[in-house]
Amino acid sequence: MKHVLFYELAEGAVGLAQEHYPAHRERIDEFHRRGLMLLVGTFSDAPVGAMAVFTTREAAEEFMADDPFLRHGVVGAHRVREWDEVLQP
């Protein structure tokens, strides 16, 4: 079972996103290096939203706990959903 984090940009937060992106990207890189984040990216209608796939719910919650985008109001709505990957290696 994987866990998918969905982010939606807060209204009017494009400037905030640009300001806090470097720290947010550092956090992404850290979780990827640790093997906790498997995939991440924005949707084609960005900057409306993004998603990331984590190995566990705990990893997703740890990521969110100190994500600059959440701490500084870049993200409006967010949620984590369990995902039962069918084509597992």
Rank of each mutant, 00 (worst) to 15 (best):
28 I>K: 03
11 E>G: 02
83 W>Q: 03
33 R>L: 10
72 H>L: 03
63 F>R: 03
42 T>K: 12
32 H>Q: 15
30 E>H: 11
73 G>R: 02
74 V>Q: 04
89 P>V: 07
77 A>G: 08
41 G>Q: 08
4 V>A: 07
77 A>Q: 15
14 V>N: 10
26 E>C: 10
89 P>Q: 12
17 A>C: 08
58 E>D: 14
24 H>T: 03
40 V>S: 15
40 V>N: 09
50 A>Q: 02
86 V>A: 13
51 M>K: 09
43 F>M: 14
86 V>P: 08
35 G>E: 07
80 V>S: 02
88 Q>I: 04
66 D>H: 14
23 A>D: 13
43 F>I: 12
75 V>N: 00
9 L>E: 09
35 G>P: 06
84 D>L: 14
81 R>W: 14
64 M>P: 00
25 R>E: 14
34 R>Y: 04
51 M>H: 10
34 R>T: 08
57 R>T: 06
25 R>M: 11
17 A>Q: 12
28 I>Y: 07
3 H>P: 00
68 P>E: 05
67 D>I: 07
39 L>S: 13
82 E>T: 12
84 D>S: 11
81 R>H: 12
3 H>D: 03
81 R>P: 04
16 L>K: 13
56 T>M: 06
12 G>L: 05
24 H>M: 06
49 G>Q: 03
52 A>M: 08
45 D>L: 02
60 A>I: 02
5 L>A: 03
42 T>N: 08
25 R>N: 13
28 I>A: 07
65 A>G: 11
63 F>G: 04
16 L>A: 12
83 W>N: 01
89 P>C: 04
19 E>F: 05
65 A>P: 05
71 R>C: 04
38 L>K: 12
62 E>P: 01
18 Q>L: 14
54 F>L: 01
1 M>F: 06
48 V>F: 00
84 D>H: 13
59 A>F: 02
48 V>C: 00
6 F>P: 00
61 E>D: 15
32 H>Y: 11
60 A>M: 07
75 V>R: 00
25 R>S: 12
19 E>H: 11
36 L>E: 15
76 G>R: 02
39 L>G: 11
56 T>Q: 09
89 P>R: 11
2 K>C: 06
19 E>T: 13
46 A>Y: 03
12 G>N: 03
45 D>T: 07
83 W>M: 09
14 V>H: 08
45 D>Y: 05
10 A>C: 06
74 V>C: 05
72 H>M: 02
36 L>S: 10
82 E>D: 13
70 L>D: 03
6 F>S: 05
31 F>Q: 06
64 M>K: 14
66 D>V: 10
3 H>I: 00
31 F>K: 01
20 H>S: 02
19 E>C: 07
64 M>S: 11
9 L>A: 11
60 A>R: 01
66 D>F: 01
48 V>W: 00
45 D>G: 08
62 E>Y: 01
54 F>T: 04
35 G>I: 04
85 E>F: 12
18 Q>A: 15
88 Q>P: 08
50 A>C: 03
68 P>Y: 01
72 H>K: 08
31 F>G: 06
8 E>L: 11
15 G>S: 13
58 E>Q: 15
19 E>Q: 15
78 H>G: 07
15 G>E: 15
79 R>N: 10
78 H>T: 08
80 V>M: 03
42 T>D: 09
70 L>C: 05
9 L>Q: 11
2 K>Q: 02
42 T>Q: 13
14 V>F: 13
88 Q>E: 14
33 R>A: 15
52 A>Y: 01
36 L>H: 06
